[in-house]
């Protein structure tokens, strides 16, 4: 997958493709801005950027329907933007302000939106996996036809609770899609050094859960695989595993110097496999958009991101009384 593939003919309309471009670009620019605000000390603590992985969430959201649920780990900004959460609310949570999704009390790793069916934002590696299956359990119990996208990384794939969950999801036939975002590094430890099998999706076979590997740098491939997985779940056939091969360009968190890989490795992925460049090329060669059209989109995205940064800076700190609210319902 290292070499650039011939640009395939998209099986979606030019407008749809343009939307994917816009959504991926929003995530990238948002994350760059978050990195910048972190550098300025406006964002504190841990901040895990999603840059490089944008096609995964945008592709899978394209396969989701209203009412479907999603949750992920602490690398969650991209997921929130892709499911339609307000960039202002996300950025203001990063700066710990009243206007944030959790009123500033959650931070980068702990955000939720009941309205958009986004169930976090989980800071404990792998803890979201049984929770995701539990959300799917609630849908099955209620008898609706929703599915839950449960995202986790290649690092979390080594947690014991993941396999406890695979087992129960399989015996109870839960409508859950386990999305393994394999960005190849569990913090600083490469998959090669930490994971016994090169193909994590095959681990579902032990539980009778079908799985497949997907090129996570290709939004259309992700969407197609997502649609297949969704169809499987909605047909009542139980869980499905998608191992999405992706890559994060930045360190594990803002304070990671990323010395465990070479600069060339990162540069090569950026140049040869970048998910946004790929769609950009498709748009241009397919004459779905001109350079000017794309510039206009860039400008529009820049404005949204700048506004979110302004909002995140101007929103007040939470009232001190907030310390004592939301502890119990």
């Amino acid at each position: 997958m290292a070499a650039k593939k011939a640009t395939p003919k998209p099986n979606v309309s030019g407008d749809t493709l343009k939307n994917y471009y816009r959504e991926m670009l929003l995530i990238r620019r948002f994350e760059e801005k978050a990195g910048q605000l972190y550098g300025m000390g406006l964002i504190g603590g841990f901040c895990h950027l999603y840059i490089g992985q944008e096609a995964v969430v945008v592709g899978l959201e394209a396969a989701a329907d209203e009412g479907d649920k999603r949750l992920t780990s602490y690398r969650d900004h991209g997921h929130m933007l892709a499911c339609g959460m307000d960039p202002n609310g996300v950025m203001a949570e990063l700066t710990g302000r009243e206007g944030g999704y959790s009123k500033g009390k959650g931070g980068s790793m702990h955000m939720f939106s009941k309205e958009k069916h986004f169930y976090g934002g989980h800071g404990i590696v792998g803890a979201q996996v049984p929770i995701g299956a539990g959300l799917a359990f609630s849908d099955k119990y209620k008898g609706n036809n929703n599915v839950t996208f449960t995202y986790f990384g290649d690092g979390a794939a080594n947690q014991g609770q993941v396999y406890e969950t695979f087992n129960m999801a399989a015996i109870w036939q839960l409508p859950v899609i386990f999305v393994i975002e394999n960005n190849q590094y569990a913090m600083g430890t490469s998959q090669q050094r930490s994971t016994s099998t090169p193909d994590i999706y095959t681990r579902g076979a032990a539980f009778g859960i079908p799985g497949e590997v997907v090129d996570g740098m290709d939004v259309l491939a992700v969407k197609e695989a997502g649609e297949k997985a969704v169809m499987h779940c909605r047909a009542g056939k139980g869980p499905y595993i998608l191992e999405v091969k992706t890559y994060r360009y930045r360190g594990h968190s803002m304070s990671d110097p990323a010395k465990y890989r070479t600069r060339e490795e990162v540069q090569r992925v950026r140049e040869e496999r970048d998910p946004i460049e790929r769609v950009r090329e498709m748009l241009l060669t397919g004459k779905h958009a001109s350079e000017d059209d794309l510039k206009a989109i860039d400008k529009e995205i820049k404005a949204i991101v700048n506004e979110s940064a302004e909002f995140a800076k101007s929103s007040p700190l939470p009232a001190e009384s907030e310390l004592w609210t939301d502890i119990v319902a």
Partner: peptide
């Protein structure tokens, strides 16, 4: 964890 998820899901 599954039960916690089910509670988040309204059960």
């Amino acid at each position: 964890g599954i039960a916690v998820g089910a509670a988040f899901g309204g059960l």
